[in-house]
């Protein structure tokens, strides 16, 4: 049984924001991540503010500029199954379909997926680690086979989301409402590296709620994919994941976004790969060069060096598949 908390389910966004004004008040969307954290006493909660009574945060629709608006409360299963997403933003549908298990996809929301807490077993366990206000990241010299190889400095979590890589590759923007009104933040600016602030994962301020995720229009030349490698086919988080969003024209890559999951504390843009493939045809030498370049900055810990060849192999295979459809 978890700790005691009070519970409120407001009927308006404004009320939800003001309810979040009290100490240790936390947002409950699907609860799939939050309730696990509370059960393991990873952080305290005095009040849960459920946003499930806000239907305006649900649903998927076209925007006036032909992009897509996805309400933050839309379930992962709805994202995975939606015809517009499967057709025009395939990598997002594939990423959503690769999350957890069918039951968790029916319950977990897209907003919750982007805001979920790290899965590092020291963070989730009884360790007073750096991220929880302690002095030490236990992964540095500990069991670090699932930790990051890029972007870690003082803390070595990987970002657990399977939807964020595709959303970042598509250039998603988040709409956020809080005590001081509404604002937009690009997904690229949403997640926070530990070197900037080790105690937070996102730029959300107290009382702020992600209300919707906006995607720019997808060009007809866009091809996208997400591939996830994991130890078993259900439940598991990504050991390594690769999202590609490429615009192809006459056999050449006109624009590209390449994002890795399981690599870094935030969804990680592989800019080295983008630089090499953009403007080129996807020939084997280019693919090989790009796959190698992706890992030049990687700094593995004691037990996660296997991720380097894994990412290189996945990138090469995924780019090769893109060449074949182009």
């Amino acid at each position: 049984m978890t700790v005691h908390f009070s519970y409120v389910r407001p009927a308006s966004l404004q009320d939800a924001v003001s309810q979040l004004g009290s100490d240790n008040a936390l947002i409950h969307a699907g609860g799939t991540d939050l309730l696990g954290c509370l059960r393991d006493e990873v952080f305290p909660a005095e009040k849960l503010v459920s946003i499930s009574g806000l239907p305006e945060l649900r649903g998927i629709s076209k925007t006036t500029d032909n992009g897509l608006r996805i309400g933050a409360l839309t379930t992962i299963a709805e994202v995975a199954a939606h015809p517009l997403i499967r057709e025009s933003y395939a990598a997002l549908a594939q990423g959503a379909a690769a999350v957890a298990s069918p039951q968790l996809r029916n319950q977990g929301t897209l907003g919750g997926n982007l805001c979920q807490k790290p899965r590092c077993w020291y963070y989730r366990g009884e360790f007073h680690c750096l991220r929880k206000g302690g002095n030490y990241c236990y992964a540095v010299n500990g069991e670090n086979q699932y930790h990051c190889i890029l972007g870690g400095k003082n803390c070595f979590i990987v970002h657990p989301s399977d939807t964020a890589p595709a959303l970042l590759a598509f250039g998603a923007v988040l709409r956020i409402t809080g005590p001081r009104g509404s604002r937009s933040v690009t997904l690229a600016d949403f997640h926070v590296l530990p070197e900037r602030d080790v105690t937070r994962e996102t730029v959300l301020e107290a009382g702020e709620i992600v209300t919707e995720i906006l995607l720019p229009p997808a060009s007809a030349a866009m091809r996208s994919s997400y591939r996830k490698v994991r130890a078993r086919q259900a439940w598991d988080f990504a050991l390594a994941g690769v999202a590609l969003a490429l615009e192809l024209e006459g056999g050449r890559v006109r624009r590209s976004r390449v994002v890795l999951s399981g690599a870094a504390p935030i969804p990680w843009r592989a800019v080295e790969v983008e630089k090499i493939i953009t403007g080129s045809a996807l020939e084997s030498e280019v693919i090989h060069e790009a796959a190698v370049a992706a890992m030049t900055k990687a700094r593995p810990l004691g037990k996660n060096g296997y991720k380097i060849p894994l990412f290189q192999g996945m990138l090469a295979e995924e780019l090769e598949k893109m060449r074949q459809v182009s």
Binding site: G31, T32, G36, S50, A77, Q103, L104, N106, Q107
Partner: peptide
């Protein structure tokens, strides 16, 4: 498991399978 990792607690909510262990009764 009571943490969403086994499925023994599966029920249908509005016809969709979900884990009852990770659903608050109030929800």
């Amino acid at each position: 498991c009571e943490r969403g990792e086994c499925g023994a607690c599966t029920v249908l909510i509005d016809d969709l399978p979900r884990y009852a262990c990770l659903t608050l009764a109030v929800e």
